[in-house]
Amino acid sequence: MNFESIPLQGFLIVSSILFCIGIWGLLNSRNAVRVLMSIELMLNAVNLNLMAFSSYVDNNLIQGQVFSIFVITVAAAEAAVGLAILLSLYRNRVTVDMESFNLLKW
């Protein structure tokens, strides 16, 4: 593949934008499911960064790809536990509004 074709910066900028959209969603969502979706967006942005660097800078020993496989594994575990916590919260509070989960707030 001719690597002069798409610059590395293109991938980096796309992943930066994706990460910032994820942070915005994390800070502004009232719905707890949407917060989990924003976390998944941020994990995808990080993965895209790792893959771009592994393909352009370390294209023989692609360690970034191995890292992104581990990130995908941890993301799957995180999503399962996160949604289970969400179900448990919903059972006790009958809402998914983030503002009502304030048991630990002073």
Binding site: N2, F3, E4, S16, Y56, V57, N59
Partner: peptide, 15 residues
Amino acid sequence: DLSKVWKIANPNLSI
């Protein structure tokens, strides 16, 4: 992203 110059590896060594 835009200001740093990354050391791009030789594309011919690509796996």
